[in-house]
Design a protein around this nucleic acid. Structure first.
Length: 478
DNA sequence: CGATTTTGACCAGCGC
DNA sequence: GCGCTGGTCAAAATCG
């Protein structure tokens, strides 16, 4: 249960680092020309009070009342205001109440602005909590199925059917890389989906993979039952192995507006090639991760041909090393996206099941435009569109704060192959993905608040709900 | 001087 | 088999 939550925490921590509010230097080399992908546009945050209602394990009504200092004084954080204030102070004696009134108006306007911001952030925080709770329920449901033989049998029946569908659709609806056929024994198939989940998640580390492993446990048991260990290879075994090979090539593409040459995702990259790809006058740059020896993660960076202000970054592979907190935001986002890409069935609110997202192009939920899975490409690719166009935000999107700028944006139609557009409704994993991407893309999600909440919730996790107010405030104050 | 980038060559996959 | 394309390699150039 902690994994989904921790993932959110990792994101929050990463904000802290990206915003430069932490004194800790992670030693990562920053490319000057990089776009700071998760940077907030405004930093004139100030001290405020945030009321957090923890919905997980706390008794009903127990709330965390937090005073979050974002490092700047509420009414003096703006240099202009400060100078105005000084000026006003000097003139106060001379001009009397007129200056005082002006000051009051300025301060009140500032206070109103901060209150508005506060409300917006609170709404976002509540939504994150909602998603966390939803994910928790989902995982508990999976655990119950696993422990209850009756319900387990029920699942087995459904999942076996689903798996068969998956296999068939992989065979007929998807180009499969057959390179590694026959390399694995049938008994390994039970592990396949686990490995697919992780190995295909760009920027996914071993630790992050554990969450997915647990999530997939019950499904895996079904697959083990399906294929006896001593059974010789069948065509479906081979198909599973082929699918695994394909999964390892799964990619996550992130679209973001940037004039810089590369988005900052917290990792160190070394350019090893550049090519002019067909159909795009902008060259495609190839990078590999240099944070560890022989890290297999690579990424391609290319400007969108139709809109050159959009930078398309495509990740492939899985890190073989721990990631710095600064890299966790993108890692979580892409990992979640890839997990969704490969997670197979996604229960929907209308009772339907999308049995195999790989066989189709899927426009993911929580917005009409945020993420798209394309299976028609040589490799299964999920595209996260964070270009922040905000064109048409559905009223029922997960992040429905009226004041919150949405990361959801118009999706470029070129990402959709013919026949694309299956709408999948809410699931817990979807929610996590949505929250992850939304947080990552929301330029106004203040780093200070993120750091504070991260610290607070982290403490409450460790202390079973006991909040260390001093620590929270002190850390943020730095 | 080591690390990084550039850039042409090379290789593999794929379609015709 | 041939040509096109995407991806990678590696020597040279550049940078800090």
């Amino acid at each position: 249960m902690e994994n989904g939550f921790n993932q959110e925490m990792m994101i929050l921590n990463s904000f802290d680092d990206h915003q430069g509010l932490s004194d800790v230097d992670h030693g990562e080399k920053r490319v000057l020309s990089e776009m700071d992908f998760f940077a907030a546009e405004e930093r004139n945050y100030s001290s405020t009070t945030v009321q957090i209602k923890k919905e997980s394990d706390e008794p009903a009504g127990k709330e965390l009342l937090l005073h979050i200092s974002t490092g700047l004084d509420l009414l003096t954080s703006n240099p202009n205001v400060m100078s105005e204030n000084r000026s006003m102070d000097s003139n106060r004696s001379a001009e009397g109440t007129t200056t005082s009134d002006t000051e009051f108006v300025v301060l009140k306007a500032e206070l109103d602005r901060m209150n508005t911001e506060n409300e917006r952030l609170r709404a976002i925080l509540n939504q994150i909590n909602d998603k966390y709770y939803s994910l928790k329920m989902h995982i508990m449901s999976l655990s119950n199925h696993q422990q209850n033989p009756g319900s387990s049998a029920e699942i087995k029946s459904d999942d076996r059917k689903m798996i068969n569908e998956v296999g068939d659709e992989e065979n007929h609806g998807f180009g499969i890389n057959l390179k590694h056929r026959g390399q694995r024994e049938g008994k390994d198939i039970g592990k396949t989906q686990q490995q697919l989940e992780c190995s295909s998640s760009p920027l996914c580390t071993e630790e992050m993979s554990m969450a997915n492993l647990r999530l997939q446990k019950s499904i895996n048991s079904v697959q083990i039952n399906k294929v006896p260990h001593d059974q010789p290879h069948t065509s479906k075994d081979l198909d599973h192995q082929a699918a695994e090979a394909t999964m390892k090539k799964a990619r996550v593409s992130v679209r973001a507006r940037s004039e810089a040459t590369m988005i900052s995702d917290g990792c160190q990259w070394r350019k090893y090639g550049q090519k002019l790809a067909k159909g795009n006058p902008c060259p495609r740059a190839y990078y590999r991760c240099t944070m560890a020896v022989a890290c297999p993660v690579r990424k391609q960076v290319q400007r969108c041909a139709e809109d050159r202000s959009v930078l398309i970054t495509t990740y492939e592979g899985r890190h073989n090393h721990p990631l710095p907190p600064a890299a966790m935001a993108m890692a979580s986002t892409t990992s979640a996206a890839a997990t969704m890409l490969l997670s197979g069935p996604m229960p929907s609110a209308d009772g339907l099941q999308n049995s195999n997202v790989l066989a189709r192009n899927v426009q993911l939920p929580y917005s009409q435009n945020l993420a798209t899975i394309s299976a028609s490409a040589p490799f299964p690719t999920v595209t996260l569109d964070l270009t922040n166009n905000n064109a048409n935000i559905p009223t029922n999107s997960l992040l429905h704060s009226p004041q919150a700028p949405s990361p959801f944006s118009s999706h470029q139609p070129q990402h959709l192959s013919p026949g694309a557009g299956i709408q999948v409704l809410d699931s817990s994993q979807d929610i996590v993905n949505a929250a992850t991407a939304a947080i990552a893309a929301d330029p106004n999600f203040t780093a200070a608040l993120a750091a504070a909440i991260s610290s607070i919730i982290g403490n409450s996790q460790r202390n079973e709900g006991v909040v260390d107010h001093n620590n929270s405030v002190g850390d943020v104050g730095k």
